[in-house]
């Protein structure tokens, strides 16, 4: 589904190279966790996959469902099934959740040749999916993320994921800032959305989310390169020993 090959990415403003040759293959139905210390390039990887401005790809390729992902505008990527759960969800004063999500859901559905939802059908879907992450149904009247608590914002990201039914979901530090109860709710939401045709790339600094959402593969990103890959037990080792034992290497990155 997703093939990242030797991806080099710099910051547009100052040319600083952040990703220094990332190679990663993700197949449908798999859950990949990407871990690593602060500043290793985890969020940059998520941003580049979703199409955020401000980065330049200097080398390498990203093929998604057989086509060049980097060539697509961010909204096109989303309609093609790529979803990014933001580390810092954006507040949109004056844009109601209902209006926002209806536009989003229907543009995605239209693209997939699915029937555009009527107002009634949409509200029903919204109510159903909101329960998944225990969001108050009254949220439809509220402006997107405005006045939401930190936990609500993160649950709102997973709620949107559920509404948009992507094929590739990238979660950028969805666990950060969550207390243990919220973490459980969010994890259960994610688990209920796992399926054989949907892949997850979960970016996290800590192992604790992976206690609930069991990954198929764990990769360690250090200084812009994947320096170690393994199964779920690798996350436990990192929790135990930290990142210090992993030195950036010049050798070829390990593919999953």
């Amino acid at each position: 589904m997703l093939e990242i090959k030797n991806l080099h990415v710099s910051i547009e403003d100052d040319g600083t190279e952040i990703l220094k040759g990332v190679t990663l293959t993700v197949n449908a139905g798999e859950v990949h966790a990407i871990m690593g210390p602060n500043g290793s390039g985890k969020s940059t990887l998520a941003s580049v996959l979703a199409g955020r401005d401000g980065y330049v790809v200097t080398e390498g390729s990203v093929i998604y469902k057989g086509v060049d992902l980097l060539d697509m505008a961010p909204d096109k990527r989303a309609r093609e099934g790529v979803f990014l759960a933001f580390q810092y969800p954006v507040e949109l004063p004056g844009v109601s959740m209902a209006n926002f999500l209806r536009q989003a859901v229907n543009s995605v559905r239209e693209h997939r040749n699915q029937k555009v939802l009527s107002a009634m059908e949409f509200l029903k879907l919204m109510k159903e999916k909101a329960q998944l992450v225990q969001l108050d149904p009254s949220l439809k009247q509220r402006a997107v993320n405005e006045g939401f608590s930190g936990g609500e914002k993160k649950r709102n990201e997973i709620f949107q994921l559920a509404m948009l039914e992507p094929t590739l979901a990238i979660l950028d530090e969805t666990d950060s800032g969550l207390d243990i109860d919220a973490l459980r709710v969010v994890s259960e939401g994610i688990n209920s959305l796992r399926s054989s045709d949907r892949a997850f790339v979960i970016i996290t600094h800590y192992q604790r989310l992976l206690d609930y959402v069991i990954p198929d593969f764990v990769h360690v990103l250090v200084d812009g390169r994947i320096v170690e890959s393994g199964g779920k037990e690798l996350a436990l080792k990192l929790e135990d020993q930290g990142y210090d034992w992993l030195k950036p290497t010049e050798s070829d990155p390990i593919t999953a």
Binding site: A50, G51, A73, D75, A78, V90, L92, F100, Q103, S107
Partner: peptide, 14 residues
Amino acid sequence: SEAMFYLRSRGIKE
């Protein structure tokens, strides 16, 4: 621009 990106990342055209 961040608000624009957020909306577009949900499939909404520019």
